[in-house]
Simulated assay, not measured.
Amino acid sequence: MKPTIIIEYCPKCNWLLRAAYMAQELLTTFEADLDSIALKPSETAGRYTISLGDVVLFDRKEHGRFPEIKELNSWCATR
Rank of each mutant, 00 (worst) to 15 (best):
M1W: 00
M1F: 04
M1L: 12
K2R: 15
P3S: 08
P3D: 04
P3N: 11
T4S: 05
T4W: 00
I5G: 01
I5A: 02
I6Y: 07
I7C: 05
E8S: 15
E8I: 10
E8D: 12
Y9K: 03
Y9T: 04
C10L: 08
C10V: 10
P11G: 08
P11N: 09
P11I: 09
K12E: 12
K12P: 06
C13L: 11
C13P: 11
N14A: 11
N14T: 08
W15H: 12
L16C: 06
L16G: 02
L17S: 14
L17C: 05
R18E: 12
A20H: 11
A20L: 08
Y21T: 09
M22K: 04
M22I: 15
A23V: 05
A23P: 10
A23L: 03
Q24S: 09
E25K: 06
E25R: 05
E25V: 03
L26V: 04
L26N: 05
L26M: 15
L27F: 02
T29G: 00
T29Y: 00
T29C: 02
F30E: 04
E31H: 08
E31K: 07
A32C: 03
A32Y: 07
A32F: 08
D33Q: 14
D33M: 07
D33L: 08
L34M: 12
L34G: 08
D35G: 06
D35K: 13
S36K: 12
S36M: 07
I37P: 07
I37E: 06
A38R: 15
A38E: 15
A38H: 14
L39S: 03
P41M: 12
P41H: 10
S42Q: 04
S42L: 09
E43R: 09
E43T: 10
T44D: 13
T44M: 11
T44L: 14
T44W: 10
G46V: 13
G46I: 12
R47A: 09
R47P: 05
R47T: 13
Y48V: 05
Y48M: 10
T49P: 07
T49R: 13
I50H: 01
I50R: 02
I50W: 04
I50A: 00
S51Y: 06
L52P: 05
L52M: 06
L52K: 09
L52Y: 15
L52G: 02
G53E: 09
G53H: 11
V56C: 03
V56D: 00
L57I: 13
L57H: 01
F58M: 06
D59A: 11
D59I: 04
D59R: 05
D59H: 07
R60W: 03
R60C: 10
R60Y: 05
R60G: 08
K61M: 11
K61G: 09
K61C: 08
E62R: 12
E62Y: 10
H63I: 10
H63Q: 13
H63M: 13
G64T: 12
G64P: 14
R65E: 13
F66C: 05
F66I: 12
P67Q: 03
E68M: 03
E68Q: 14
K70C: 00
E71K: 01
E71P: 11
E71H: 02
E71F: 04
L72V: 03
L72N: 01
L72H: 02
N73P: 00
N73M: 02
S74A: 07
W75V: 01
C76H: 09
C76K: 02
C76M: 15
A77Q: 14
A77P: 09
T78S: 15
T78Y: 11
R79A: 15
R79L: 13
